[in-house]
Design a protein around this nucleic acid. Structure first.
Length: 653
RNA sequence: GCUGCUGUAGCUCAGUGGUAGAGCACUCCCUUGGUAAGGGAGAGGUCGUCAGUUCAAUCCUGACCAGCAGCACCA
């Protein structure tokens, strides 16, 4: 039996057909057996579901499918992976002293990290691309060999590739050590790879940028030079991708922030936002909206100090862990016996517990939902700042829900519902949920963790079964849910969070008197929906590309005069609209209406009201909506009512 | 924080070892024009900061600051 089975393997193809071959048959041979055209188109194969080289020998009965360029995901992965190797080969051929490390496929492309004394320049990238094209045109075969650990280490010691030696040493016992050959160039890699270099489309790859990256992602280790590139199946796909990048750059909130005069940053306050009237108008519209939603959802708004003595941060545990990232505030107190050290609050929770603790709480007070638009400061590393997205001074839509363990599930469900409704109002229709469970290092009994995790998960399940679980990724103080929304161009942003905390109530001694008269610890739920207002503003700006919905637009309408005789009337029109709560400007400049319409349209003003002699005489306005052709002449009162109705925030409609 | 790059008018950018230029914006004048740029004139800069080299530095060198890209970090 076993002797016969060793001689033959049964290959099951995707359509269910089976074929029998000699043991050790390769995917390439099977493809060739099926048809010449398939053999030519074949890039790789799947053996029992695992993506493999076509040259991999099949030793057992297996399901086999041949991967071609039609299999988009697999083809992209293979092309990019080989492209990374071809790039590394090109680099080593151009600069033989360069040491190679790793070169994986990532979202939208690939990279390869090199160790080279000289920095790579933009010109170098062009030279590397040229060399890569030559390698592709050579159609060099890709071969694979399995080496012993000792041979691999000896080889890399001989060729002076210390990073590769380290990689080989890190490969677990029992795993094959594969060497790939792209023509004469050889690299350690787990594969799989294409059949020959010519399968990478010579006109559909591009090297994008150079950047520093630490060896093995460890900032205490050597910094390498990383070259990023991307590759696609066709030139057209590459061009579409490059076009998408341009579109993303156009909606960069830093650029739009300047164009629309929303905010600025300057040297004297790195990471802190100077909000201009336009930007602040949007911010306030958003804040007002959030305030109404939170109030309606049973939250009580509070405000806590920004400068707080270090004693509180010591008690909360932040001083030990995050002191380096806190802004400290000293005061020149000549007569003080003891110098006080204060910190600008990096988060709101300890202050919220102070308010909770200020009076004795009963179980009847729970759940108590305390909300604050909490202005926080964190000394973020200098290289991490990014426009509005990562700042040192920010405002959270923060709240803490003090509740009993039994209330966790209900509070979670309420929160998810609120969050979904708010995201929808703000123009984000879908979001993903991630559930993070207990880590190794944690506080709280397993019993409480069981209960909290079950409550969070049950609440999520009420809303959707579509969530991912991240085992062990919870905070040390409790399990959490993270919420990621998707923007107009498909990018994901993690904004919302909902975290159970068993630790802080303990540390800061929060209690309530239960029905049985016993004093007990409440659970504290940290939660945010927008995260930080600053960052969320950035996301909103990029999501709408500066064309805000009417209710959020910084300037909702401009009254533009056609002749200067209408200046007085324009002021009356503006006053009428302002009386309805609208943000309105007048444009009485000595310019033609064409000029004014163009300028305000480009600036993204949603409504332009043109007034000339006819409008003055008829008490009308010519209403032009952004994105629409032409205009409608309406009586002033009717136009004002219509615009005001359309500008109503979504929760008040 | 690390590596690389960048810093010139309000904005976008050009430029030079002998103290600077364009377009847009701004101001004024002409024009009162009916829905995406009318014409003319003018004003505006300590060339990121501080040192150094040089007869002379916005330009070369160094340090620092800030920004950009990526990495690392993100309670």
């Amino acid at each position: 039996m076993s002797e016969v089975a060793e001689a033959h393997v049964t290959i099951t193809l995707p359509d269910g057909a089976t074929r029998t071959y000699g043991t050790g048959v390769t995917g390439a041979e099977v493809a060739a057996d099926i048809s010449n055209s398939l053999a030519k188109a074949a890039l790789a194969c799947r053996i029992d579901g695992t993506l493999s080289d076509l040259s991999r020998r099949i030793e057992h009965d297996a399901e086999l499918s041949i991967v071609t360029a039609k299999d988009e995901a697999e083809a992209l992965e293979l092309i990019r992976h080989d492209c990374a190797h071809i790039m590394a080969r090109a680099v080593q051929e151009l600069w033989p002293a360069t040491k190679v490390t790793i070169g994986p496929v990532i979202d939208n492309g690939f990279y390869y990290d090199f160790d080279r004394d000289e920095p790579f320049t933009e010109d170098d990238l062009a030279a590397i691309e040229k060399r890569m094209r030559q390698i592709i045109e050579a159609r060099d075969p890709v071969k694979t060999e399995v080496w012993t650990r000792a041979d691999a280490i000896a080889h890399y010691e001989k060729t002076g590739e210390p990073f590769k030696v380290e990689l080989v040493e890190a490969i677990p016992e029992g795993q094959p050590i594969r060497m790939y050959w792209h023509g004469p160039w050889q690299d350690l890699c787990r594969g799989p790879h294409l059949v020959h270099t010519g399968q990478v489309p010579a006109d559909a790859f591009k090297l994008m940028s150079v950047a520093g990256a630490y060896w093995r992602g460890d900032s205490s280790r050597k910094q390498l030079q990383r070259i990023y590139g991307t590759a696609f199946r066709t030139r057209k796909d590459l061009e579409a991708y490059l076009h998408m990048l341009e579109e993303a750059a156009k909606r960069d909130h830093r650029r739009i922030g300047k164009q629309m005069d929303l905010f600025h940053l300057q040297e004297e306050a790195p990471g802190m936002i100077f909000w201009h009237p336009n930007g602040w108008a949007v911010y306030r519209a958003l804040e007002d909206y959030m305030r109404r939603r939170l109030t309606a959802a049973g939250y009580k708004e509070i405000k806590t100090p920004q400068v707080v003595d270090r004693k509180l941060w010591e008690a909360s545990g932040h001083w030990d862990k995050y002191r380096e990232n806190m802004f400290l505030a000293y005061v020149e107190e000549e007569h003080a016996k003891e110098k006080r050290i204060n910190a600008l609050k990096p988060m709101n929770c300890p202050c919220h517990v102070q308010i909770y603790n200020h009076s004795l709480k009963s179980y009847r007070d729970l759940p108590l939902r305390l909300a604050e638009f909490g202005s926080c400061h964190r000394y973020e590393p200098s290289g991490s700042m990014h426009g509005l997205m990562r700042v040192r001074g920010f405002t959270q839509d923060d709240a803490h829900i003090f509740c009993t363990e039994d209330q966790i599930e209900d509070e979670t469900a309420r929160f998810i519902e609120l969050l979904g409704s708010i995201y929808k109002d703000l123009g984000f229709d879908s979001f993903d949920i991630k559930f993070s469970t207990r880590p190794e290092q944690r506080v709280g009994s397993d019993e409480i963790w069981d209960k909290a995790e079950a409550a969070l998960e049950a609440a999520v399940r009420k809303v959707t079964n579509d969530y991912t679980v991240d085992p062990g990724e919870g905070a040390f103080y409790g399990p959490k849910l993270d919420f990621k929304l998707t923007d107009a161009i498909g990018r994901e942003w993690q904004c919302g969070t909902f975290q159970a905390d068993f630790n802080l109530p303990e540390r800061l001694d929060a209690e309530y008197v239960d029905a049985d008269g016993e004093r007990k610890r409440p659970v504290m739920m940290h939660r945010a929906i927008l995260g930080s207002f600053e960052r969320f503003m950035g996301i909103v700006i990029e999501n709408c590309a500066g064309r805000f919905p009417l209710w959020l637009a910084p300037v909702q309408a401009v009254v533009a005069t056609i002749v200067s005789d209408a200046d007085g009337y324009a002021e009356r029109v503006a006053a009428e609209l302002r009386a309805k709560g609208l943000r309105v400007e007048t444009d009485t400049r000595n310019e033609k209406i064409n000029y004014k319409v163009r300028e305000h349209s480009v600036a993204g003003v949603p409504v332009i009201l043109a007034v000339g002699r006819q409008e003055v005489e008829g008490e009308t306005v010519a209403v032009r909506r952004l994105g629409e052709q032409g205009q409608r002449v309406l009586p002033l009162a009717e136009a004002a009512a219509g615009i005001a109705a359309d500008a109503t925030p979504p929760d008040l409609r």
